[in-house]
Amino acid sequence: MTSGNSSGHRAHLAHHFSESSQQSESARMGMWIFILTEVLLFGGLFVAYTVYRSANPEMFYNAHKHLDIHLGTLNTIVLITSSLTMALAIRSIQLNDRKKSIKLLATTFALAAVFLIVKYFEYSHKFHLGQLPGKFYTYTGIEGSNPHIFFSVYFMMTGLHGIHVIAGMIAISWVMRITIQGRLSSEYYTPMELTGLYWHLVDMIWIFLFPLLYLIG
C-alpha cells in the first residue's frame, strides 16, 4: 500500500494520520462497521418477517398478491442500475474524470428519485384501499387471519428502506456538490467512496426485500 511519499502536505490529510492511504483505510473501516450495524438493524425486521410468515404462511401468500409485481420489478431494475452508476462514478473520480463522475452521480440521484416516485404510487394505492398496518387496516378482500400483519411488516421494512434511500439521496447530492467545487480528485475521494458503500448497502437490502415481499411463490 505505501509508496513512501508521506511528506506531501495534502489539504485533506488530518494530522493524526501519517498517510492518505491510512486515513482512507480508517474511513472505510468505520463505514464497514456502520454497515454491520445496519445489517443487524434490518436483520431484526427480517427475523420478524420470518416469524410471522412461518406462523401465517397462507395469509402471507394471499396478501402478497396485492403488491404490484411490475412496480416491484421496475424498482429493482432502477436500484440495481443506480448502484452500477454509483460504482462507475467512483471509477471516474479514481481516473480523475470529474465531469463524468458528476454526470454519473446525477444519474444515480435521478434513479433514486424514480425509485421513491414509484414507491409513492404504491403507497398511495394501499392507503386508498386501507391496506395499512395494525389497527389502521380496513381492507376486507384478503382471505386468512391477521392480514394486517403482512402490511405491518411490508410498511415497516419498505418504510425503513425508503428512509435510507432519502438519506442516500442527501449524501449523493452533498458529494456531487463537493465534486463540482473541485474538492475531490483521484488523490482524495473518500466521501464519494463511503457514499457509494452506503448506496450499495441500500441496493443490497432491496435485493432481499423484493423477493421476500413481492414474490412469495
Binding site: 500500500m1 462507475l88 471509477r91 479514481q94
Partner: peptide
C-alpha cells in the same frame, strides 16, 4: 490510483450490473 488502489475495469462493472439484472 495514487494510493495504489485498484481501479476495477469498466467491463467488470458492466458485466456485474448485467448479471444482477
Amino acid at each position: 490510483t495514487h494510493e495504489n488502489r485498484h481501479v476495477v475495469s469498466f467491463k467488470t462493472y458492466l458485466a456485474t450490473g448485467t448479471a444482477l439484472l
